[in-house]
């Protein structure tokens, strides 16, 4: 199994992309898409990506819902900052000590932090495990550290480490 399908998640994703782009579930699409997915997943393995160890991936579902909720809320918040009266800047940097060290977990956290308007991933120091983010509407630094760690990092830690 592992020999023929070394990266099942990647192959599955590629097959899904192919079927979506073809907009058909005909046998031909499955066949060609499957061959492409196998070949490309094999080529992906040649890049020697670090192994992903997912445990209890269902925990990502509540996290996804939470992220969608936060994205909607912060979209409205940032729109309010942009359209509201000009005021003194409250933006600033926040340094957050992270326990998460898995590259895939960090990549996911980067997607979450960046796609939530109002926060941007600036820098991560893997040696010290410190993440630097920039917050547009910075009121309380400690609450941001707490938010990122509790809302996002904890479920990611459970899944990836």
């Amino acid at each position: 199994m592992r020999r023929w399908l070394p990266h099942p998640l990647m192959a599955g994703f590629l097959l899904l992309v192919w079927l979506l782009l073809q907009r058909s579930l005909a046998p031909g699409s499955w066949l060609l898409g499957g061959a492409l997915a196998l070949g490309l997943a094999w080529a992906f393995g040649k890049l020697q990506p670090p192994r992903a160890r997912l445990r209890g991936a269902w925990r990502l579902l509540p996290l996804a819902l939470r992220v969608v909720h936060d994205i909607v809320r912060s979209n409205l918040a940032v729109a309010g900052v942009v359209l509201g009266p000009r005021r003194r800047a409250r933006a600033g940097f926040v340094a957050i000590p992270l326990e998460l060290a898995d590259p895939y977990g960090l990549a996911l956290l980067a997607c979450i932090v960046t796609s939530t308007p109002g926060t941007i991933w600036v820098d991560h120091d893997p040696a010290r495990g410190i993440l630097l983010i920039h917050v547009l509407d910075l009121v309380d630094e400690a609450s941001w550290v707490e938010t990122i760690k509790r809302r996002y990092e904890r479920p990611l830690l459970e899944v990836f480490q």
Partner: peptide
């Protein structure tokens, strides 16, 4: 409208999300 680079870089994420 926003003042400096670090603030301005936040704004376009509205277009890339909602």
């Amino acid at each position: 409208r926003l003042r400096d680079f670090y603030q301005r870089v936040h704004a376009p994420t509205l277009g890339s999300t909602l």
